[in-house]
């Protein structure tokens, strides 16, 4: 995370030295773009706060640990799609579940959909790419996640 601040600071400093006017323009563009997309972000944050309340970590853990791995995988991919979780929460959670005996393929379905499929980021994605493309991209991503999970399952000897 810190490297983002360092890179931004350096980029800004270099830009200022090179051309004051251009830098000011860049800041203006940054503010304008940020303000334009802010309502979509607000919508997303509201949805996230409600969904995370309705689907707490505990529910996710319980459903992922379903006895049937394929049922678990489907649950995992649905939860991964509808929730939004930063990596520093999601991976430790998966680490714990792994130790509890949840199959790799179930966890893979969860993390991959978590990263690639964004039901909650829909308001933002739609602003940039339109509804149709957003839906297509998310559906494709969902299937990619399922394929990845199945391959992981095969490699870890969980499917056969």
């Amino acid at each position: 995370m810190y490297y983002l601040y360092i890179v931004t600071a350096f980029a800004l400093a270099f830009s200022l030295i090179a051309d004051r006017k251009k830098t000011l323009m860049a800041i203006k563009i940054a503010v304008k773009k940020f303000v334009n997309i802010l309502p979509a972000f607000l919508t997303m944050l509201i949805l996230v706060s409600i969904v995370l309340f309705l689907v707490p970590d505990k529910t996710i853990s319980n459903c992922l640990g379903n006895n049937n791995k394929f049922v678990g995988m489907i649950f995992a991919s649905v939860f991964g799609s509808i929730t939004l979780m930063p990596g520093f929460i999601a991976f430790p959670l998966c680490g714990i579940l792994l130790k509890k005996g949840v199959p790799y393929m179930v966890l893979s379905a969860f993390t991959t959909t978590l990263m690639m499929v964004g039901v909650l980021t829909y308001p933002i994605e739609k602003e940039y790419f339109g509804m149709k493309v957003t839906v297509i991209r998310n559906v494709i991503s969902f299937f990619i996640a399922i394929i990845v999970a199945l391959v992981i399952g095969i490699f870890f000897g969980e499917v056969f």
């Binding site: 890179v7 931004t8 980029a11 800004l12 830009s15 251009k22 830098t23 323009m25 860049a26 800041i27 203006k28 563009i29 940054a30 503010v31 773009k33 940020f34």
Partner: peptide
């Protein structure tokens, strides 16, 4: 967004 702004002008 600052980086995006810099990208756009440079």
């Amino acid at each position: 967004f600052v980086l995006i702004g810099l990208f756009e002008v440079w």
